[in-house]
Write a protein that binds this DNA or RNA. Structure first.
Lengths: 266, 266
DNA sequence: GACGGCGGTTCCGTTGAGCGGAACCAGGGC
DNA sequence: GCCCTGGTTCCGCTCAACGGAACCGCCGTC
């Protein structure tokens, strides 16, 4: 189609335009979009126009595009996170009430921890995590919990890949990480100390499914100064157990969707 | 293109497929999708295939399609709800802590109240509201607050349209609604009594912008039995004021996106 | 165990929607 | 005035999208 048409379909191009947005680039100009998706301006212009007309994208005052409200609404219909949140949030509230700190709930997706729910308040340390965000597993509490209880071979693959350094405390040596994970597994909960963000540290516990595999992780992030992390452990563990139980009950019922685990790449 | 091609573009068709999902239909089969979007099976099949490949949709165990995790992640990048949540949630937490009841934060979009954030816990009444959902304005607390302080002509248009009946307590008579709104405006907060769901009632207050126009509403929903609603009013008002202030401060700073108000149709 | 209906999948000839280079326009810095 | 950058419009060429039709596999029925 057209001359030099390179095989990509219209649909995939339109979707690529949506995919061009991410945490670092929540707004983009037309030319940035064209560049990021590697398509001519004229093409990007036409497609973006359609996306905007449908309100998948919206154009703000300074001519930058951003993800539209309509896409937000539709995204929230996704059954997997919706179900997980429905189940986990009330228990997270209980944890929040007692700790007044940041509470996280995450699952593993590919090599990242995907944050499904987060509670925070005025007294909690401000941190970078965000619902819908992906963070590397080795420097985060929930990430370590997910990683430590994952399969042997997954851990191996993970450690074999280059480990991003986030702060000077981040564990980037594969050997040290393996030992840290073994320790985590042995004691039953994960700890981090300024490995993701300077000034904050965390505890997290795994949430197991009926077959004893990690499904999710539940964690608390606090300011390094008030860091008696271990006092949260029993509370986390008991809430994690309740969440696990609630998840099993829900899995049993024949609610549409949410039956299976999705393939986890990307 | 093709024979009988009816003028819709590929992109708009693909988007329509996404738009086919809603609260009542979180999962759909291929033929349901084709029917809802009014396109031949063959076409729907091809497009849905592409959406699935890109993981905008996912297909679950019983061959039904549902909104994919990737779309959830992208939707969460939408600056408008993201900013609003960032600002409102900590104050909502404070309210939750003191009340242990359902806390809602909503804006007006078209003729609906769009729920931007919701906090709930084990002690709160289970209710239908959901983040990302739209509910009619006249039977909900936040909806009434948004409506009562809207412009004269908006109220008029709203009352002129047919008013959906949700329970036997829903106000469906235009005249009665107008009086109720006047009363709400006079006293400064909105009340509902089993107008949306039998067994629960609510209070809500408006959140004003710098120019004194309603931007949002903040409300509490409680079980009818423990219904001394007025005791929440001062607390709601003070938190609403803090949210309003925080929103003004944020509007001032030159953060990308979130500068303007979007057109509110649909 | 043949039959029929239904949801999903594949095939393939037709054709107009999508393509994108080129020309054009608007703003802003010099 | 001039240039440069980012956005918009034009338009003739072409092949990707289209969708009717045929096909497949499953299930319930006779």
């Amino acid at each position: 189609m057209g001359n030099g048409g390179n095989g990509r379909s219209v649909t995939s191009r339109a979707l690529d335009l949506l995919g061009a947005f991410d945490v670092e680039h929540p707004t983009l100009t037309l030319s940035e979009l064209a560049a990021r998706c590697d398509m001519p301006m004229a093409t990007a212009h036409r497609l973006v126009g359609e996306l905007e007309a449908w309100r998948a994208l919206e154009r703000n005052a300074d001519n930058r595009y951003q993800v539209g409200l309509r896409l937000w609404e539709i995204g929230l219909l996704s059954p997997v996170p919706r179900r997980l949140r429905e189940i986990a949030l009330p228990f997270m509230q209980d944890l929040y009430e007692r700790s007044k700190e940041n509470i996280h709930f995450a699952v593993r997706k590919g090599h990242d921890a995907l944050y499904i729910a987060k509670l925070t308040g005025h007294k909690a340390v401000p941190i970078t995590s965000r619902e819908g965000a992906r963070l590397p597993m080795h420097p985060t509490g929930v990430g370590k919990a997910l990683l430590a209880f994952a399969s042997e071979e997954f851990i191996e693959t993970y450690c074999a890949r280059p480990l991003a350094r986030c702060t000077r405390h981040t564990i980037v040596e594969p050997g040290r990480l393996r030992r840290e994970l073994a320790l985590t597994r042995a004691r039953g909960y994960a700890l981090t100390n300024e490995e993701m963000t300077p000034g904050s540290c965390s505890v997290a516990v795994p949430v197991f499914d009926a077959d004893g595999r990690v499904e999710a992780a539940l964690g608390v992030v606090v300011h390094s100064a008030r860091a008696n992390l271990t006092r949260y452990v029993t509370d986390l563990e008991s809430e994690a157990a309740k969440i696990a139980q609630a998840m099993n009950e829900h899995r049993a019922d024949p609610y549409p969707g949410f039956v299976h685990d999705l393939p986890d790449e990307v």
